[in-house]
Nucleic acid binder design. Sequence first.
RNA 1: GGAAGCGUGGCAGAGUGGUUGAAUGCACCGGUCUUGAAAACCGGCGUGGGGAAACCCAUCGUGAGUUCGAAUCUCACCGCUUCCGCCA
Length: 424
Amino acid sequence: MLDIQWLRNDLDEVTRRLATRGYSLDAEGFSRLEAERKAIQIRTQNLQAERNSSSRAIGIAKSKGEDVAPILARVADLGDELKAAETALEAVQGHLETLLAGIPNLPHPSVPVGDSEADNVEVARWGESPVMAFAPRDHVDVGEPFGLDFETASRIAGARFSLLRGPMARLHRALAQFMLDLHVSRHGYTEVYVPYLVNPAAMFGTGQLPKFEDDLFQVPRAGMERMFLIPTAEVPVTNMVREQIVARETLPLRFVAHTPCFRSEAGAYGRDTRGMIRQHQFDKVELVQMVEPEQGEDALEELTGHAEAVLQALELPYRKMLLCTRDMGFSAAKTYDLEVWLPAQGTYREISSCSHFGAFQARRMQARYRHAQGRNDLLHTLNGSGLAIGRTLVALLENFQQADGSVVLPDALRPWMGGLDRLA
RNA sequence: GGAAGCGUGGCAGAGUGGUUGAAUGCACCGGUCUUGAAAACCGGCGUGGGGAAACCCAUCGUGAGUUCGAAUCUCACCGCUUCCGCCA
């Protein structure tokens, strides 16, 4: 959520910057609503002041044993008028809040302005795509003999689910634990285990609600508040600091979590229907940081580096993309995507997305820190995949497949695979 | 599932209808003192909103209600604690 003061004080500039990411703010509508709010608020507060002073006068008069009837008569019909004013104020404030909650974050000045994926800027490239003396097969074919099973999954759950058995299940588990251990032991993150179902307030905090409800799986509960399956660990982990005031000395906070992620993928019907690229359920190791505002920029570079370290350790070729204004997510001020090379597709595909949110999420969550002068300021939040497990599995199968159908395992992973050096 | 209790500022903790945004302590900020620090003493100190300012409004888990007036009374919800039952 943007600071409403920015809109009040510098509406043109905010409108211009939002336009670069394809959001057209109804500046005139906002101004009109603001003017209305102000008028109603002044009126309401005057009535409240009148009521307060009268009530105080009654208290004083009573304590002196004087007759309060004249004052009572004076405030007799204040009540209805006040009630009407308060109702009107609530309504206009509600409108403003709804408007504000639907406005995306302002892009950071270093973000390239662009219309689509095609305008993202490649900032780095690492590794060589493997040379194969044969036509690379995709992960569905490579993985099938080792227990990658979509047919059974679809019978149990439907399309966009997968079932792993034997070596595939083992490899999947090894990847998660390898990543978790790397981030904990080498990058200074604290491992956390978090709820996979969260309440609407948490979803609002990180920006999934109210705008992207259709992307979520929802769990209704009779007579109780509905819950949502997390689409990413970002939601529960970032919300760890909601409505908290953390001590400055504890910053930066760095958390890593391995969780399943659930996405309805509404509106993606025809895309990536084959294989485990786009699933309703997938596992991910997520990095989250809460930092002081001044540290946000550096923290994004650092966090992205932590995700890159996984790809490098696994010897997977990738490139690092700086997303343009229109390709960024709703809450992000700046985002790097890491894209891994997939030989069968002959392209790079997203395997990690690392973003800096500024105070956007913290404002929605009321997450603050207490600094030296004793003041409370909003935290800045960041997160990134480190990495998506399913897509990492895909990348390994495709990049390390051999002519004989076996798959060589990268050295770094072998301790988590009981020393195994290849699937055969 | 049954029973009881509790939710107040950064923290601890008073306050049970009236000039209470809220005692007190700790923490924090400024000052005096000191070679420096500590201690002691003096002053300040929640958050959000409106206003040029004086000042005003809101806020004691959330929401509704009673009242001229609610931190305080009523109801619902949320959360936490304790005991009993059940359970991986």
